[in-house]
Design a binder for these strands. Structure first.
Lengths: 221, 221
DNA sequence: CATTTTTATGAACATACATTCATAATATGG
DNA sequence: CCATATTATGAATGTATGTTCATAAAAATG
């Protein structure tokens, strides 16, 4: 090894290829873990199982992740970023607020198709806080904020422009998100092709027009 | 013991009081377990813990329940019945469909207050199918059906009477339920007094009127 | 009170599993 | 090729916990 200052650096810049290979192995482990966590919850997937699926020895996993919880955390963080990258763009840009919401809803179909396993991992574990640790819980809250914030902002903007009814933007955002998560998780259970797309169109109708016919004399609702 | 035919019956009709006492003990175990399962998920609560909380020995639990899973199942079934008893009546009777839905939504506040622990148990474990066994999963589906059925029927009736917009009744019911469950679970986390009641009123507004102002020229939504 | 039946006890058992570590394999580079 | 550093291995360890069972306490019986 060279006698320069780099000798101190134990594992970082050892060699471009070495590092790539390491990241490759890391990815293989994450990928195998994703497959398993998409089927079963945190407690029902063992490190031995993950190791076998990734074709590594049990102990090898600990060269990449300091614990099972950290492995899960990395997985959750990575898949969440992917998901956010798919749906958040719908809420940006100069479009009509109505169009933004419409696109936002429909992009969930794409997310459900392209990232089915990741979504299952996320929703399976994150709904109903049986999360494996405080760090994971915090990450979950952060992700939630990054969706609810922009979403309620768009709704608020629509209200200011007189485009939307005067609903509570935060509550409205929560309503929509809870619905989308629920339907996506159900669809991810038994994947019936593009049923989800049809369902989400109907969701759009429900949220855009609501239940009540405008004709009937409005009461205090 | 009497020499009659009853000698065959080992533990059923032994004596009125004995039987009452046994049911009392059973209830104490269930009650202790409920407290624990409302805080932590299935895997994080041990039989030893439940036994200690109920002030019985570990082995005693197995005189009442054949396994941890059965204990949980009984708990889930019992608490679910209680919950259904609170909210389902809103959907029966001769009322206006609009009033039924309104009452249905608001009864969730009462359920959240009166059966906070039971609700947490139910929602914590049931959302995102990390359920402890097929029997529990089946029960969960049954419960869901018994709410979604009547709810979508009421919506369908409202549509037929020209009171509601022509939404898909089943999808609409799922939207509403997912929203209610989500908000209730969030409120059960950090219980901020009667915030839930205010929130549910806003939910009512969202679902009744929808996002779009009727004034603006409707597009194809 | 003696006998028998029922119920409670909790230590012990078996299993599952996260994590560790001494060892082996492999790569590096001179 | 040798010496050294890096990475992979998987058997072993410790712990947690669901379940069992021989034993004890309690209650019922006559």
């Amino acid at each position: 090894m060279r006698s320069d200052v780099e000798t101190k650096i134990t594992s970082a810049e050892k060699s471009p290829r070495k590092e790539r290979e390491r990241q490759q192995h890391r990815q293989e482990i994450l990928s195998a873990a994703l497959r398993l966590f998409a089927e079963k919850d945190f407690h029902s997937v063992s490190m031995q199982e993950i190791a076998a699926a990734a074709e590594f020895a049990t102990g090898t996993l600990y060269n990449f992740f300091s614990s099972k919880e950290e492995l899960f955390f990395e997985l959750l963080a990575a898949t969440a970023e992917q998901g956010l990258g798919t749906i958040l763009p719908a809420l940006e840009g100069p479009d009509d607020e109505r169009d933004k919401l419409s696109l936002f809803i429909r992009l969930h179909t794409r997310m459900a198709q392209e990232q089915a396993a990741a979504l299952r991992l996320y929703l399976l574990e994150s709904r109903g806080r049986c999360l494996p640790g405080p760090r994971v819980e915090a990450k979950k809250r952060e992700i939630d904020e990054r969706v609810i914030g922009p979403l309620s902002s768009v709704i608020a903007a629509g209200i200011r422009k007189g485009l939307f009814n005067d609903v509570d933007p935060l509550i409205a955002a929560k309503c929509l998100l809870a619905t989308l998560e629920s339907l996506i998780l159900a669809a991810a259970g038994d994947p019936q092709a593009d049923d989800l797309d049809a369902e989400l169109k109907k969701v759009e109708a429900v949220f855009f027009n609501g239940f009540l016919k405008p004709s009937g004399g409005k009461r205090d609702a």
